[in-house]
Amino acid sequence: MLTALDKKLLQEIADLHGEPPGAFNIRKDGEGIERRSLEGIEIIPKKDQPGIDVIVAPGKEGTVHIPVILTETDLSDLVYNKIEIGEEANITLVAGCGIHNPGKGNAQHDGVHEIIVRKGARLVYTEKHFGEGEGGGKRVLNPKTVLVVEEGAYAELELIQIRGVDETARVTEAEVMAGGRLVMYERLLTDKEQTAESDVLVKLMAEESTARIVSRSVAQGSSSQKFYPRLLAFGPGRGHVECDSIIMDQATVRSVPEIWAENSEAELVHEAAIGKIAGEQLIKLMSLGLTEEEAEEAIISGFLK
């Protein structure tokens, strides 16, 4: 049974009201508590280690939810998930982790996701992080995603972490095969003493492999952020990295994009910018009657949309 707190966390990370539609697996405090497979979308718990296999049959369309929630303190949850999207399938997959840490100890979730998007398939993958808790214990999230986008497939990753996670170190590795397309949107907000690090390595393996990485972040308080988006082309692929950060208060932001081509037909671009909120934006919104604080909020929430 899901408690009221569970439901709140699920709503925060997966926009769920009660039981998800379609296939799903809900993991709470280190254990799978509810699960539903469907014809063509099988969710199987792993036998030798914590985690699940999600196997989508070729040509299948649908939605899969695999949220993780933590509601205890002094808990470290490590999970290995494997997700395979069959050829020509079209799947929306909502992952994510919500932590309510009630005590003084840490609550930590480290998830390793291995995702294969088979030829011609399409995957939209959303992973949202959320943390809360009054005990002062840390909420820690260290996700690792290893992705293969096969020939002619399309994968869209949306990685969102807005408020409440104290420490995060994210690793994302992707290989994009011939004609495959990868789009990755990262949205991050840190506050207080929080730290966030994101390490991305995308390899464009062959001709017509394309990737776009768009990272937007806001650093407030004394928080710090580091980004290492790397884009490597072995063949005549095309890639674009865009990192844009708003820095406020006493925060620190480091952005170290790298583009690396091993083929003379490759086209790689990176853009990175760090700056405070533009004065002309504040002035415009204040001229509509918003206070300076309201204007800042509106600008940040738009920026992270």
Partner: peptide, 13 residues
């Protein structure tokens, strides 16, 4: 109220 000569642009909004 004032409509600016050079309106500001807002990423994402």
């Amino acid at each position: 109220g004032y409509a600016f000569q050079h309106p500001a642009r807002f990423k994402g909004m």
